[in-house]
Amino acid sequence: MILAIAGSGIGSAVAAPQESQNESVLVLVDHAKVVRLPEKAQTVIVGNPAIADVSVQRNGVMVVTGKSFGVTNLIALDGTGTLLAESLVRVGAASDAVLTVQRGMERESYSCTPTCQPSAQLGDGQKYFGEVGAQATSRNSQATGAGASK
């Protein structure tokens, strides 16, 4: 049985403990990476699922998704509970297409790809984040039919 707990992406592989205890995988918030699990891995544990999430797929592959900024760890165990691998997962921000506007203590983010549009990011002011998030949620509900009238 494979237990998937918790992250936008992990590096190319999970380091075996004897090779490197401090192997790091870099992932961006809201991005995913495909990672090959060690052979015979049966359990995958993420230290803080608020930072990263994993989804175990077939053939020894998992998808790691960055959820919020920070560092957590990823552990792979075999069927007997033996540690196969442990890595750090570092989740950072994608800053290449994001414009940040600081208004006093309030921050607003815009995705500029190429035209700038509101894009709620972790760390934005509460009012701005709530308004942009509510609009996105409403739009997604309408697109999936959840907001359609009966």
Results as ranks from 00 to 15, higher is better:
residue 3 L to I: 09
residue 3 L to E: 05
residue 4 A to R: 04
residue 4 A to M: 08
residue 5 I to V: 11
residue 10 I to P: 00
residue 10 I to E: 04
residue 12 S to F: 09
residue 14 V to N: 00
residue 15 A to T: 09
residue 15 A to P: 04
residue 18 Q to G: 08
residue 18 Q to V: 12
residue 19 E to V: 13
residue 25 V to I: 10
residue 28 L to H: 08
residue 32 A to T: 03
residue 35 V to H: 02
residue 37 L to I: 02
residue 38 P to K: 13
residue 40 K to N: 14
residue 42 Q to C: 10
residue 46 V to L: 10
residue 47 G to F: 03
residue 47 G to Q: 13
residue 49 P to R: 11
residue 49 P to I: 02
residue 56 V to T: 11
residue 56 V to G: 02
residue 58 R to H: 10
residue 59 N to F: 12
residue 63 V to W: 03
residue 65 T to P: 00
residue 66 G to N: 05
residue 67 K to Y: 01
residue 70 G to I: 03
residue 72 T to G: 02
residue 76 A to C: 15
residue 78 D to E: 06
residue 78 D to M: 06
residue 79 G to V: 01
residue 86 E to P: 00
residue 89 V to H: 02
residue 91 V to K: 03
residue 93 A to R: 13
residue 94 A to R: 11
residue 96 D to R: 13
residue 100 T to Q: 10
residue 100 T to V: 14
residue 102 Q to T: 15
residue 102 Q to R: 15
residue 103 R to L: 10
residue 103 R to T: 09
residue 104 G to H: 08
residue 107 R to P: 01
residue 107 R to Q: 15
residue 108 E to P: 02
residue 109 S to I: 01
residue 109 S to K: 00
residue 110 Y to R: 04
residue 111 S to T: 00
residue 114 P to T: 13
residue 115 T to C: 01
residue 118 P to C: 07
residue 118 P to K: 04
residue 118 P to N: 08
residue 119 S to W: 15
residue 119 S to A: 15
residue 120 A to I: 01
residue 123 G to I: 09
residue 126 Q to C: 04
residue 128 Y to M: 07
residue 130 G to T: 12
residue 132 V to H: 05
residue 133 G to Q: 15
residue 135 Q to P: 00
residue 140 N to L: 15
residue 140 N to R: 15
residue 143 A to C: 00
residue 143 A to Y: 06
residue 144 T to S: 14
residue 146 A to C: 04
